[in-house]
Design a protein around this nucleic acid. Structure first.
Lengths: 196, 196
DNA sequence: TTTGAAAAGTGACTTAGGTCACTCTTAGCT
DNA sequence: AGCTAAGAGTGACCTAAGTCACTTTTCAAA
């Protein structure tokens, strides 16, 4: 009984997330929410692995994950940190329904709502507001990535760090510095010399 | 007379571009196309400038442009090359209707269809297929940028160059190497030492 | 067809940041 | 409380790539 109560709470958060951008009628929402699945994982568990099917796109109810790839030398490169209210997936593999190309694992115990490609297309073509929601979200994501590319092209490692400190101070608190280094494209040691 | 004939040809190209991803009825297309404006520019002319309003998103009928920003030292950093069949804008400024943050200018004489934010939202909310078109396009764009970020994080300048040579051989033909260098985040001189 | 400007190549030197090896600190576990 | 492992700091050295200054090549406009 209690379980379902909490689940409704979580779904309400998701609805609010949609309604920050588009409006949905109660009927539309009822339809939309029925296409999500719930999942929860502990710290260190994998959401997505290289070579494994990528069945879902995930909206994070609670928690923190990192999306990264591992190069030939075994070095980890972080593509994205994602926390509450973020979407995360291996978008490329998901979109083309191919085996995963990156890893996504939990830095904290986390909870997700999962959306399959089939269901995403279903709700997008059934409920135009949802198509617009994802269009606008995706656009924002694009803009963010462009910013990041510019920062990689134009800034020194140190100023990229300062920039991140300003932009996402809360993130820095929750994530070990060696992962921040990997996100910025700097070695752990070099990052460590910046503060001092 | 002739003018309008050619214009219909160009609009047909645009329709085909939409219909690679979604289907449109003739009526829908008639509605959609009426929201685009035509524009043509000569080599070296600006489509977007820093500080100027960004009234449109542009679909390139013909030609080639570069989108770039200029850093404090006056150095140019290329965010994107865009040619036939590509969309280009200062997405960030456009989306928020703020003054431009980058430059976009023509490397060749070019022709565009221009879509204002107001018109884009209009056709997206009026014709769901269009919302889905932009959603899917934007998603592809996102995936491309992620790839580029990964390449900046994981690859040496030289392998980024080889990678680009494979991925867009036609582009290399049309663009001076110093601009390729600026796109890759490498100095002109360093790039020039790779071939040899 | 000349000619001036942009593009491309190259040598010499500098530098940001990487790598390696080691130490110190903190945070979970049992 | 005590112990292991992950995180973080630091010194010494190395290297990929940047910078500067100059030459050579290409190309478009008069």
């Amino acid at each position: 009984m209690k379980y379902f109560y909490f689940m409704e709470d979580k779904l309400l958060l998701l609805r609010q997330h949609f309604e920050e951008i588009v409006s949905l009628t109660d009927d539309e929402w009822k339809f939309v929410k029925s296409h999500f699945e719930y999942r929860s994982l502990k710290k260190h568990q994998f959401l997505i692995q290289v070579g494994q099917p990528v069945d879902f796109e995930y909206w994070i109810i609670k928690g923190l994950v990192k999306a990264y790839s591992i190069d030939q030398k075994g070095k980890e490169h972080i593509l994205q940190f994602a926390m509450e209210d973020y979407w995360v997936s291996d978008h490329c593999a998901f979109q083309h329904q191919e085996p995963g190309t990156i890893f996504v694992d939990c830095l904290e115990d986390s909870e997700f709502f999962c959306l399959s490609l089939e269901n995403r297309e279903k709700i997008c073509f059934q409920v135009p507001a949802v198509a617009n929601f994802f269009r606008i979200k995706s656009n924002h994501g694009y803009i963010n990535l462009q910013q990041r590319i510019l920062s990689l092209l134009t800034m020194t490692a140190e100023s990229r760090y300062e920039y991140l400190l300003n932009k996402l101070p809360k993130l820095i608190q929750r994530v070990p510095k060696k992962l921040i280094a990997s996100y910025l494209g700097v070695s752990r040691e070099t990052l460590s010399r910046f503060n001092s």
